[in-house]
């Protein structure tokens, strides 16, 4: 069952000065099924935050539909099952952490002992014990992010939407948020989040949706990710003459230099034997030969840069590295 369904969303904004409309979302569509963790990936200005705001009903789309559990987002009741953590938010600095969480809980329909117990449980979960009565005004960035996460999950929502949850956090803060998200994933919550921290996204997500210039350009599961690079091989070698690398340019995707070593990426598995033979013949020392599995970052960069890099640039890149 789809918990979140975004269908053909289009959105344009008027320029303040010229009053001309420019379209920022060109028919964005994707779905998140029950219990799935869906990452939303894209460069700055791709339309991630606009899409999230449309899902939350903070912005109206020009056309298209957003459905949560099959119900339209304008349906007031459906907001009870959604939790949202913004990237940068002002969380009412005049309130203490406890007052702020009581405010959020009450607005989500909670009250009494249930609310009080839930607040205590979540404060402990994110490691903010002892700060309950401190004003939010005095909170650090990391503490504010954690307070933001608690307010998003205080009412135990089925769908959690997070906009850049790891933004500006130190490694410990990132780990803490990541651990909470993984725990929620294990509890069967559906999580949809945008992030630029790709290793974290790779670790948590079941599937990723890549958006570029207001269009979804690719959706892939983490299982597919490991298959993307099947058949590609990296050869680690030492003492490779530059002219020999230029001679095998047709068989390789690129060369990376690491001190006196070269990591040669063979573009197809069947070329491996030929490349190895050529390298051995010219006196290079072969250190290792390994199948290459791309990271999410590789796939993301490929999608974003696709079409913008021609063959001549590839040749220049090889020359720059080897030369």
């Amino acid at each position: 069952m789809d918990i979140l369904s975004v269908e053909e969303i289009r959105k344009s904004f008027k320029s303040d000065f010229t009053r001309q409309r420019s379209e920022v979302l060109h028919g964005v569509s994707f779905r998140a099924s029950d219990g799935e963790v869906l990452g939303f990936l894209g460069p700055n200005g791709a339309g991630k935050t606009t899409t999230i705001k449309i899902i939350l009903g903070l912005i109206r789309p020009d056309s298209g539909k957003v459905r949560v559990m099959g119900r339209d987002i304008s349906d007031r009741g459906i907001k009870k099952v959604i939790g949202y953590m913004p990237e940068k938010a002002y969380f009412y600095n005049h309130l203490s952490l406890r007052e702020f969480l009581e405010f959020c809980g009450r607005m989500s329909g909670m009250k009494g002992d249930l609310l009080r117990d839930r607040i205590s449980e979540l404060i402990e979960l994110v490691g903010l014990s002892g700060s309950e009565d401190r004003k939010l005004k005095g909170f650090s960035k990391g503490m504010t992010q954690r307070a933001g996460l608690i307010q998003a999950i205080i009412h135990d929502p089925d769908l959690l939407i997070l906009d850049e949850p790891f933004s500006g956090l130190d490694p410990m803060g990132r780990k803490l948020i990541r651990d909470v998200l993984m725990r929620l994933r294990d509890e069967g919550k559906t999580i949809f989040f945008s992030s630029h921290i790709l290793p974290d996204m790779e670790m948590i997500c079941d599937r990723t949706c890549i958006i570029k210039k207001g269009r979804v350009v690719r959706q892939l599961s983490m299982g597919e990710l490991t298959r993307v690079g099947e058949g590609k091989v990296d050869i680690r070698a030492r003492s490779c003459p530059q002219e020999e690398i230029e001679n095998i340019a047709d068989y390789i995707e690129g060369v990376r230099k690491n001190h006196d070593e070269s990591i040669i990426s063979v573009s197809k598995q069947e070329y491996t034997r030929s490349v190895l033979t050529r390298l051995l013949d010219c006196g290079a020392d072969i250190l290792s030969v390994a199948t290459r599995h791309p990271t999410l970052e590789d796939v993301f960069l490929d999608e974003i840069e696709s079409g913008s890099k021609g063959e001549s640039e590839k040749q220049e890149e090889i020359e720059a590295v080897t030369g």
Partner: peptide, 13 residues
């Protein structure tokens, strides 16, 4: 300051 998001994302008209 976008604090209003904290209200409008909840079941509040």
């Amino acid at each position: 300051k976008k604090a209003v998001y904290m209200v409008l994302i909840r079941p509040i008209t």
